[in-house]
């Protein structure tokens, strides 16, 4: 069932009508989204992967925007991610870091349990003159080192630009974990395979937002589609000054930041 074909996410949410709500709840319920691909590639047709519900992966190219100035550090995103994706305790597909910095350049950073329970008051031991939160997650890099190093083709990039892991092919060597400069990957202690943020692939292909974006009460996290002319993220990326993490690594992250500080890596 395709609910957001020609409607932008924003309009759609504004509508918020009963029908949409019903659709939303129905989205939670059935798991009948097999083979939901329409691809212009002949191979897709041959394999019977043509779309039945209108989701065409060739029509999307996703990007993620984090406005650190809006983040209040509630950690609801981390909690939602953990529940949505069944992330084991002590491992994080997304997390929130807190920075407190003094005039003299002293830096205090922490992320207790990834911020999954929010943040308590802390004493950095100096007088912080600047303080902020930074949500982090997989950057779904365009030139990603993690796919490069996967020896068996278990890590791959989709047409929409997301980096996924096939947990049935993954041998659990951990090379991708070492290769990620952002610490976004881990070996799941239950499946013993590499695990990471998928931008909630199972949600976005059904027209929903990633769980973290939905949970964010301040709009600090935004998910957008660069192939959609009316997309909010696309417009912001086109007009605002944007930062990325560890630009010098040339991995071309697709998580964009507003209000990054030089102390954030």
């Amino acid at each position: 069932m395709k609910i957001m074909d020609n409607v932008s996410r924003r309009e759609f949410l504004k509508d918020g009508c009963k029908l949409a709500s019903a659709c939303m709840i129905l989205n939670v319920l059935p798991i009948k989204i097999p083979n939901a691909f329409a691809s212009d590639e002949a191979s897709a047709t041959q394999a019977g992967l043509e779309a039945k519900d209108g989701y065409n992966w060739g029509n999307h190219y996703y990007a993620y925007l984090i406005d650190t100035r809006k983040c209040i550090g509630c950690g609801m995103c981390v909690q939602a991610c953990s529940r949505e994706n069944n992330v084991p305790d002590g491992f994080f597909r997304t997390w929130v870091e807190r920075y407190e910095i003094s005039e003299r350049g002293e830096v205090f950073v922490d992320s207790p349990h990834g911020g999954i329970n929010g943040f308590e008051a802390t004493n950095p031991g100096f007088n912080a003159t600047k303080a902020f939160f930074v949500p982090k997650m997989c950057n779904h890099c365009e030139h990603t080192p993690c796919i490069q190093v996967c020896p068996v083709g278990a890590s791959y990039a989709t047409k929409e630009g997301m980096v996924l892991v096939d947990s049935e092919r993954c041998v659990g060597c951990g090379y991708c974990v070492q290769a990620c400069p952002y610490g976004s990957r881990f070996i799941n202690p239950i499946t013993h395979t590499a695990d990471k943020c998928t931008w909630c692939y199972h949600r976005i292909t059904k027209g929903l937002k990633p769980a973290c974006v939905q949970a964010c009460p301040t709009g600090a996290r935004k998910f957008g589609d660069l192939k959609d002319e009316h997309d909010e993220v696309r417009k912001i990326l086109a007009s605002e000054r944007i930062g990325i993490l560890q630009a010098e690594k040339l991995t071309k992250p697709k998580c964009y930041y507003i209000g990054l500080d030089k102390e954030v890596r």
């Binding site: 002590g90 491992f91 994080f92 997390w95 870091e97 950073v109 922490d110 992320s111 349990h113 990834g114 982090k136 951990g174 974990v177 070492q178 952002y182 610490g183 976004s184 990957r185 881990f186 070996i187």
Partner: peptide, 10 residues
């Protein structure tokens, strides 16, 4: 400060 996933030696 360690990235939360860097707490594990893989």
């Amino acid at each position: 400060f360690l990235f939360p996933n860097d707490l594990h030696i893989h």
